[in-house]
Write a protein that binds this DNA or RNA. Structure first.
Length: 461
RNA sequence: GCCGCGGUCGCCUAGCCUGGUUAGGGCGCCGGCCUGCUAAGCCGGUGGGGGAGACCCCGCGCGGGUUCAAAUCCCGCCCGCGGCGCCA
């Protein structure tokens, strides 16, 4: 009993606690009872089966040493009888084993003590930053989200209502076309043109530059993964609602670089002196958005594909809390540099993904919508992914074994960040001021915009 | 896509043809002994699971099959290397 998964340990030692976790996540806790009894039965049968296997092994070895043909025949007959019994038990064990794995795979991670308990709206803001522009009509809602939550956020009241990002793209700047994209690919797809495309790449380079400067290692991962791998990284819900499958092949499009980055050390052992391993991945992301219904149907806030720079960290169990603060801190720095007003919230138990024990979201203020919207999500997955992917930790001292912890956080998601820029840096005449931090990444290109994006009379292409 | 060869413990490798010792050896790593210190040397450990424990089971890319018995034989798949073909 060496390397053990924390959830399995709790299942065995304190199933009531685990049931409580499920309840806090608004999941059916009865699965815990089932998993508990199946695991118990599985262990019991295993003892029995191992004994049978042992006696059979003993007889088999005797056969090998027996020269006398008479004696041999007798032993072989005895072995045959043992196999009959063994096979019956093995059939039961196999069923039980499959059922056990299904149940274990359905269990969510534990929950960190400081996670707010409740459904979606029970989130707790932990910081606000920037001086949001608040249209007069949104002032009340804004104060509700700030002052009433105990944060006195400095803001600027404006009398003109900013144009929403979708209209900005489509009708003011005329640098996006979701209607044509709808014709050729479907809703939630888009064409972007000229300045917006430059902006997309500049944002990615900006995030990559900042993170690699901090020592994060740059990775371009595969954009597709096998079932076995992707199943180790995400939970059923995400699978169902987010993942595209390649027809006729055992391949799935990644919904984020987190998936292939987590898989990078699948089935391997990592020595404690190599940790933490900090990675920054860049990739397109493909999402079905199956559960989204008509939410955010306009524009490019919630789309089937976008680019993202992702932070991913492999850590020692005792360091994962600190590194969780670090990666959300990195995202905070990026948004401060961009000058986009935001807040960070602590996601409540009911809204946590199954893999995470704790999650922070960074939400940007959206002046046209009059509310904060998710830009970044930072999760501490502890050993949940590592267990499923078999990423072991080996401690030099005593060669003790366990599982590493994994953490992930968005750095920049291109389209979402663009929506925040289009709304926050919009002037009354429709011009969009480009954040100074991006200048460096636009400078080398003659055709790229530098200081602002101007409205156009018509779509450029 | 086709043909050939290969995949063994953290890494390298033996074993496979010809089924049956405890999967042997080297390196690395951990612990101990020795030592004034270092080097060297010696002993043990170094995949997963179960059991309170003595121990036991499983594990040779993955999944099946044959057999009393499979790393070894057979079938399918995956991956790698070489060759051929095809394509940008």
């Amino acid at each position: 009993m060496l390397a053990q998964w924390s959830v399995l340990e709790v299942l065995r030692s304190n199933p009531e606690l685990l049931k409580d976790v499920l309840r806090k996540r608004y999941m059916d806790p009865s699965i815990v009872d089932e998993a508990y009894s199946v695991d118990l039965e599985w262990r019991r049968i295993q003892v029995e089966l191992n004994e049978l296997r042992h006696t059979h092994n003993v007889v088999t070895k005797m056969i090998a040493q027996t020269k006398d043909p008479q004696e041999r025949r007798k032993l072989i007959e005895e072995a045959r009888q043992l196999i009959k019994r063994r096979e019956q038990l093995e059939k039961r064990f196999k069923e039980l084993d499959e059922r056990r794995w299904r149940l274990l795979y359905a269990l969510p991670n534990l929950i960190e003590e400081d996670v707010p308990i409740g459904e979606e709206d029970a989130y707790v803001p932990v910081m606000y930053w920037g001086k949001p522009r608040v249209w007069r009509g949104h002032e009340e809602a804004f104060l509700k989200e700030t002052r009433e939550r105990g944060f006195n956020v400095d803001y600027e009241v404006i009398d003109w209502r900013p144009v929403g990002h979708a209209d900005m793209l489509e009708n003011v700047l005329k640098l996006g076309d979701t209607l044509k994209a709808g014709d050729v690919a479907g809703s939630r797809f888009y064409y972007l043109f000229e300045d917006i495309v430059w902006l997309d790449f500049a944002l990615l380079l900006f995030a990559i530059d900042r993170l690699t400067s901090k020592g994060y290692q740059l990775v371009l991962p595969p954009y597709m993964l096998r079932y076995k791998v992707i199943n180790g990284v995400i939970d059923v819900e995400t699978f169902k609602d987010a993942i595209y499958k390649i027809e006729g092949e055992d391949l799935y499009l990644i919904a984020t670089a987190e998936h292939p980055l987590a898989a990078l050390y699948a089935g391997e052992e990592i020595y404690d002196d190599e940790l933490p391993k900090k990675l920054v991945g860049v990739s397109p992301c493909f999402r079905k958005e199956a559960g989204a219904g008509n939410r955010d149907i306009k524009g490019i806030f919630r789309v089937h594909q976008f680019h993202k720079v992702e932070q991913f960290v492999y850590s020692l169990p005792e360091d994962s809390r600190r590194l969780h603060e670090e990666i959300i801190g990195n995202a905070v720095e990026l948004f401060k540099e961009l000058g986009i007003p935001f807040r960070v919230i602590n996601i409540p138990s009911g809204d946590l993904g199954a893999c995470a024990v704790k999650k922070y979201d960074l939400e940007a203020w959206m002046p046209a919508q009059g509310r904060y919207r998710e830009m970044v999500s930072a999760s501490n997955c502890t050993d949940w992914q590592a267990f499923r992917l078999g990423i072991r930790l080996v401690r030099r001292k005593g060669m003790e074994r366990g599982y590493v912890h994994t953490l992930n956080s968005t750095a920049i998601a291109s389209t979402r960040t663009i929506t925040a820029i289009l709304e926050n840096f919009q002037e009354p005449d429709g011009t969009v001021i480009i954040p100074k931090a991006l200048r460096k990444y636009l400078e080398p290109f003659e055709a790229a915009p530098k200081d602002y994006i101007k409205p156009r009379p018509k779509r450029p292409a």
